[in-house]
């Protein structure tokens, strides 16, 4: 699903041993899990269901609290519900909805594609070594709607503020693409590895 090659190469670049897998046994053995993803919410959940991975992901990430990074669609799938290509139930790890981005201004184009400033708390472990705000690369039309402020780690503005990353216990979710955000993106991935 999606941009696995880029994500794995970027993780290797910052020192990870990476296995691209859909095998539950590999997910049990590894120290951390990265769920990337390009595609629609509906298709993403269908893929996880067809691969029989939902149960394994729940066990490894929710029960066993393995460090997890969700990127773009991989962030969105952690929600309980997504509306892209029809109402679809997500993994439901957070009581959040994934809804269409609706900018307040007509000047803001949808999909939200390109580099945008992300504002974050510089003390957050995922953003260690990066000055806020910093530009990250985005490609999406839907966003993660979650109103528990305590877990937000960054926000971004595109005709209105949206949640660009969050951190809840072992789960790190980012809407932007660290694997495509050059030096600062690699820094985020390296920071994630330190959490593993």
């Amino acid at each position: 699903m999606g941009n696995l090659h880029s994500v794995s190469k970027a993780l290797e670049m910052v020192g990870a041993d990476v296995v691209i897998t859909s095998d539950p046994a590999d997910l049990e053995k590894c120290d951390g899990i990265v769920l990337p993803g390009v595609g629609s919410f509906r298709q993403g959940m269908e893929n996880l269901n067809n691969l029989g991975l939902v149960e394994t992901l729940n066990r490894e990430i929710i029960e066993r609290q393995k460090p997890m990074l969700g990127i773009c669609l991989g962030m969105q799938l952690a929600a309980r519900f997504g509306e892209e290509e029809g109402p679809t139930e997500g993994l439901g790890w957070l009581d959040a909805d994934v809804l269409q981005l609706v900018p307040e201004s007509d000047d803001c184009k949808i999909p939200h594609i390109g580099w945008n400033d992300v504002e974050f708390d510089e003390h957050n472990p995922l953003f260690k070594g990066i000055r806020s705000p910093a530009s990250f690369y985005f490609v999406h039309s839907f966003h993660f709607v979650y109103n528990l402020n305590s877990v937000m780690t960054s926000t971004c503005d595109h005709g209105g503020t949206f949640l660009s990353s969050l951190s809840k216990e072992n789960i790190q979710l980012v809407q932007f693409h660290p694997e495509k955000s050059q030096d600062i993106g690699l820094q985020v991935l390296e920071n994630f590895l330190e959490l593993v």
């Binding site: 390009v38 595609g39 629609s40 298709q43 290509e85 999909p111 594609i113 490609v139 999406h140 039309s141």
Partner: peptide, 8 residues
Amino acid sequence: SQHFGKAN
């Protein structure tokens, strides 16, 4: 667009 999401 339906399969991969229109953004891509």
